[in-house]
């Protein structure tokens, strides 16, 4: 589903290379965890996958279902089924959450040549999905992410994911700032989306989230490269020993 081949990327208009020859393959149905110390390039990788302009790919390729997505803008990638749940969801004053959800869902449908949702159907979908994530309907009346608590923002991200039904879900530090109850709700939301034709990339700092979203593969990112891959036991090993040993081996 996702193949990243010898990817090199830098911050646009600078010489600061952040991703330095990264290789990674994620198969349909797989949950892949990417772990790594601060500054290893985890968030940058999520931005590059989603198509953020601030980064420039200088070498290598990203294939999604066998096709390069490097030339696609974020909206085109989204309509092909790539979704990024942000570490820090952006507050957008003046844009009503419900209206935004409706526009996003319908624009994706249009891009795929599907019919737009009728308002009652849309309302029903939102109501069902938000109930599962224990989202207060009042929250959806506010402008997008404005005045949401940290936990509400993360839940709102998962709500968008549930409604947009992407094929490749990238979760960037979705556990940060969540208490254990909120973490369970969010993890349940992600697990509910698990399916044989959908892949999830979980980017995280800590093993804690992986107790709830159990990965099939674990990859350690360091200085812009995957330096070690394994199964979920690798996450436990990191939790017990920290990154130092693995980094030492790779060096």
């Amino acid at each position: 589903m996702l193949e990243i081949k010898n990817l090199h990327a830098k911050i646009a208009d600078t010489d600061t290379e952040i991703i330095r020859g990264l290789n990674l393959t994620v198969k349909p149905g797989e949950i892949a965890a990417i772990m790594g110390p601060n500054g290893s390039g985890k968030s940058t990788l999520s931005y590059i996958l989603s198509g953020r302009e601030d980064y420039e790919v200088t070498e290598g390729d990203i294939l999604y279902n066998g096709e390069s997505i490097l030339e696609l803008d974020p909206a085109e990638r989204a309509s092909k089924g790539i979704f990024l749940a942000f570490q820090y969801p952006v507050e957008i004053p003046g844009v009503a959450t419900m209206q935004f959800l409706k526009v996003a869902m319908n624009e994706q449908r249009k891009a795929r040549g599907e019919e737009e949702l009728k308002t009652p159907d849309f309302m029903r979908l939102v109501k069902e999905a938000s109930a599962k994530l224990q989202i207060n309907p009042d929250m959806l009346k506010r402008p997008l992410n404005v005045g949401f608590s940290g936990g509400e923002k993360k839940r709102a991200e998962i709500l968008q994911m549930a409604l947009l039904e992407p094929k490749l879900c990238i979760l960037d530090e979705t556990d940060s700032g969540l208490d254990i109850d909120a973490l369970k709700i969010v993890a349940d939301g992600v697990n509910a989306l698990k399916s044989p034709d959908r892949a999830v990339v979980v980017i995280t700092h800590y093993q804690r989230l992986l107790d709830y979203i159990v990965p099939d593969t674990v990859h350690v990112l360091y200085k812009g490269q995957i330096i070690r891959s394994g199964d979920k036991s690798l996450a436990l090993e990191l939790e017990a020993n920290g990154y130092a040993d693995i980094i030492g081996e790779a060096a």
């Binding site: 989603s50 302009e53 003046g94 624009e107 994706q108």
Partner: peptide, 26 residues
Amino acid sequence: HMYYMMTRGVPEKTARAMLVYAFVAQ
């Protein structure tokens, strides 16, 4: 704001129009 909206599949032109509108509609 543009980037965030686009990652949800909202095309650039639509996202821009929504943001301009929001700025005064507030």
